[in-house]
């Protein structure tokens, strides 16, 4: 009889040892300690014993049950503790990722380049330190023009200057390539402007030029409309207003229907429904003559737009200086 009890004790200990999760533990309980478990069966056998042996047997089985239950609860306790140690806390933050990223101005410039190249424009570049000839004279800007003053443009000590627009690239390109041509010139330009929320002594521009047979003011409008539609959506509208630039005639200021209120009027467009995007016009005959292109044979159009302005609109940036401060707390947002 005692042997039977010892066997049961051993078997139980082994099973308990083997149980590593709550499911296995429940099975152990069911087999030995359950309502139809082996201990119950032992108690059932008591009836078959002679009466004088029964009390001793009862005590032994009860003692065994006490031992098993104690072992079981201890195991259950330890299993519970170990289970909660292994469970992952889903609310913990993942480790900070240090990803790379493009500067927001580069991202906007990329989009602009992508749209124009898909429309058949090439991308051309030129020097940032320029001669006055390329920056002004060749672009029909007379010597007395206010843009040439020290208070407007930045000059190098040796008499050269920092380009105030990327238009010199147009001249340089036209000197090398004959029409028909379609090009854009992205890049840095410089002005003698004190930095404030909307001004920067250095900023980025994209200028475009197309020269060919029979290019018209209407095509300039169509080209810019298509460009802004691809950038801001198909329902974008375009408005041309007369303006003056020395290198184009007729010249137009380009407005785009406000990308935020869709023309209804809001804070960004100052209730006008329009956003001013840049200048444009038909290339002035004097400019074409300067690069020995006959304005009777060819016509052309040109346009310019500011990348910062567009980035400020697209990303809701309210101070142009943020782009050049390079604070990681700013850069990481793009």
């Amino acid at each position: 009889m005692q042997e039977q009890l010892d066997q049961l004790r051993t078997a139980f200990a082994e099973a308990l040892e083997a149980a590593t999760d709550t499911g296995a533990l429940a099975a152990v309980h069911h087999r030995w300690l359950g309502a139809k478990g082996e201990l119950r069966t032992l108690f059932g056998q008591m009836k078959q014993l002679p009466a004088e042996q029964r009390p001793a047997f009862g005590q032994a089985v009860n003692a065994l049950r006490g031992d098993l239950e104690q072992a079981f609860f201890a195991k259950q306790e330890s299993l519970r503790a170990s289970v909660s140690a292994d469970a992952i806390d889903l609310s913990r933050p993942g480790p900070r990722l240090h990803t790379g990223g493009l500067h927001p101005l580069a991202q906007v410039q990329d989009r602009i380049i992508e749209v124009f190249t898909s429309m058949g424009f090439t991308v051309n570049e030129g020097p940032e330190v320029e001669t006055e000839y390329y920056n002004f004279d060749a672009l029909n800007t007379p010597f007395w023009h206010p843009a040439r003053r020290d208070s407007d443009s930045l000059y190098i000590e040796d008499g050269h200057m920092l380009r105030t627009e990327t238009s010199p690239v147009q001249i340089r390109t036209m000197q090398k390539r004959r029409p028909p041509l379609r090009m854009i010139a992205p890049g840095r330009v410089y002005r003698n402007d004190k930095p404030d929320a909307t001004h920067s002594p250095m900023f980025m521009q994209v200028e475009g030029l197309a020269v060919g047979h029979g290019l018209t003011f209407a095509e300039l409008k169509g080209t810019l409309l298509e460009f802004y539609r691809r950038l801001f959506g198909r329902d974008t509208k375009l408005r041309f207003r007369p303006h003056f630039f020395p290198f184009t005639e007729p010249s137009a200021e380009v407005d785009v229907s406000c990308v935020f209120c869709r023309g209804a009027g809001c804070r960004v467009c100052k209730q006008s429904g329009w956003l001013e995007m840049g200048g444009s016009g038909m290339v002035d005959p004097e400019v074409l003559k300067e690069v020995a292109i006959d304005p009777e044979e060819y016509t052309g159009y040109a346009f310019g737009l500011g990348i910062e302005r567009m980035a400020m609109l697209l990303y809701g940036v309210d101070d142009i200086r943020l782009f050049y401060e390079n604070d990681l707390r700013f850069l990481r947002q793009f």
Binding site: R182, G212, K221, L225
Partner: peptide, 16 residues
């Protein structure tokens, strides 16, 4: 200026 139609690009030069 608003009377000027918007025309789409004619003939893109390819060998650029």
């Amino acid at each position: 200026y608003d009377q000027v139609p918007d025309q789409l690009l004619a003939g893109i030069p390819l060998d650029q």
